[in-house]
């Protein structure tokens, strides 16, 4: 099975406190720790496991800049066979539809049976996978938590819906699936693994090499600013040393029936 996995480089929210910059038009990006989007890591692991079961290859692809090279290498250290970096100044303003259009052009240059994306990235949109599928006219399923080969030309996939219920579907290949966390346990990548792929050639493709033009790369949805909403009062913050805080908390918990 030829598998393409779309991955993206994001600030790691578990490692960073995301704050506004002084101008308020962006988040403070200095000192942020970046890594591969959590959901994409599950997608790559799943692709590797499928390849190891049925053969074929795994290609990881991203629309990004020079720094995105590092996440492609990380995913290759996990076991992906190839990496492709799609990079061009013209891509900088792309919205979700723009990213999907760029990925579509790249996907069309190959011949993939399965295209995987993450369920969502740092913007929380969860849009690129479904858009890419519609652009390629391929069947799509989102929030996938299980993939099983069934027959020659289809897979059985489980989508996780509300309440943890799994919706089982039969979907014909080629198709696009967006992967939800928990589908597998992504393998650990050590320094040695990263070193092994440090010198592998990762081709970079620009807008002209993809055979598209500026007007194909949509930027109709524009982010105007970043801000921290005023949510009214918020929580009553307990302050003082640990002992004082604990005494206050225990009193509150008792009053609310929290301590039996």
């Amino acid at each position: 099975m030829e598998i393409l996995v779309c991955v993206t480089r994001v600030p790691d929210t578990a490692e960073n406190e995301i704050e506004l910059n002084s101008a308020g038009n962006d988040i403070e990006r200095d000192d942020l720790v970046y890594s591969v989007n959590e959901w994409d890591n599950y997608a790559v692991e799943e692709a590797i496991q499928i390849r190891d079961r049925v053969g074929g290859s795994v290609t990881v692809i991203t629309v990004g800049d020079d720094e995105s090279d590092e996440i492609l290498r990380r995913e290759m250290a996990m076991g992906a066979d190839k990496g492709i970096l799609l990079s061009d100044d013209a891509f900088e303003k792309a919205d979700g539809q723009g990213i999907a259009a760029i990925l579509k052009a790249a996907a069309a240059q190959g011949s993939y049976d399965l295209i995987l994306t993450g369920a969502q990235s740092e913007g929380g949109a969860g849009e690129v996978g479904g858009m890419l599928a519609a652009m390629l006219d391929l069947p799509y399923a989102s929030l996938v938590v299980s993939i099983e080969e069934s027959g020659d030309n289809s897979v059985k996939v489980g989508r996780e819906i509300e309440g943890g219920t799994i919706e089982m579907n039969e979907i014909s290949l080629p198709c696009v699936l967006s992967i939800q966390t928990g589908i597998n346990e992504p393998r650990y990548v050590g320094i040695r693994g990263i070193r092994k792929v440090a010198n592998v050639d990762i081709p970079v493709q620009s807008i002209s090499e993809l055979g598209i033009t500026d007007s194909d790369v949509s930027s109709s949805v524009k982010r105007l600013d970043y801000f921290v909403p005023d949510m009214g009062e918020g929580a009553e913050m307990l302050e003082g040393d640990d002992e004082e805080i604990i005494d206050k908390l225990i009193e509150m918990l008792k009053a609310k029936g929290g301590i039996k």
Partner: peptide, 23 residues
């Protein structure tokens, strides 16, 4: 924007040739 809307919305916007606003 629940698990159904996440499944439907993005692709629908492409087929309609319209913009998509998520969540």
């Amino acid at each position: 924007h629940n698990t159904f809307g996440m499944d439907l919305g993005p692709g629908l916007s492409i087929k309609l040739g319209s913009v998509f606003l998520a969540d």
